[in-house]
């Protein structure tokens, strides 16, 4: 399977209804700090929206809810990776992407035979307080050489202006958060991202 070259990470299904009509083909739902019932509501809505708009949905963290709601792609952080029932996910045909920040995490991720590996933060990020320094572009090339044909997702602090450099360094896919959803005109910004991915 080929992943779309760019995808937005959104905190609620509502953003999917806004961005999917523009031509977004892949989206990650990352719900944070909400009661379990609302998380399920968002996952269910996101799944329905993505199915209707022919968008691939990746559910962050909540792998059990994703499994129960019939989603087919989850994203796991290293903490989630330790807890998740990978065998159950595989049996259900659920694909798995995994976050990595250093070599040790990368090796742990590779042992799980991931459907993609995410590396971050490439640049300083507005969203998370992280113990890791920005990885920088050279790290992207290093990761790509190590993982071979597994798709490499670059994440963290990406902007439209930084996109070309990230692809040139070897990333297959770029994940974007604030550069779209916090833009004054998210629709226009999303269109620009999609056009840039098309041209890449």
């Amino acid at each position: 399977m080929r992943l779309a070259r760019v995808y937005p990470i959104v905190e609620g299904a509502g953003w999917i209804s806004r961005l999917a009509p523009l031509g977004v083909r892949l989206v990650q739902l990352r719900v944070k700090g909400r009661p379990a019932g609302e998380v399920r509501d968002e996952v269910r809505a996101a799944r329905a929206l993505c199915a209707a708009a022919d968008v691939q949905l990746i559910v962050n963290d909540y792998w059990e809810i994703a499994l129960e709601e019939g989603c087919n792609f989850v994203h796991l952080g290293q903490g989630d990776l330790a807890q998740a029932d990978l065998a159950a996910l595989r049996r259900a045909g659920v694909r798995v992407g995994i976050s990595t920040h250093d070599h040790e995490e990368l090796e742990r991720a590779l042992r799980a035979a991931p459907d993609y590996v995410a590396l971050g933060p490439i640049y300083p990020t507005l969203l998370k307080v992280m113990p890791w320094q920005p990885q920088g572009l050279t790290r992207i090339g290093e990761w790509k050489r190590r993982i071979g044909t597994i798709p490499l997702v670059a994440i963290g602090g990406l902007t439209l202006e930084r996109l070309a450099g990230v692809f040139a360094a070897g990333a297959d896919v770029a994940a974007v958060v604030t550069d779209i959803v916090r833009d004054r005109n998210p629709e226009a910004r999303a269109r620009a991202w999609l056009a840039a991915a098309e041209a890449a």
Partner: peptide, 17 residues
């Protein structure tokens, strides 16, 4: 309005329900 309301201020308050 699916696109506006679902992603607007109410998004965090269980819009769907």
């Amino acid at each position: 309005s699916l696109r506006r309301e679902a992603a607007g201020e109410r998004a965090g308050q269980g819009f769907w329900s």
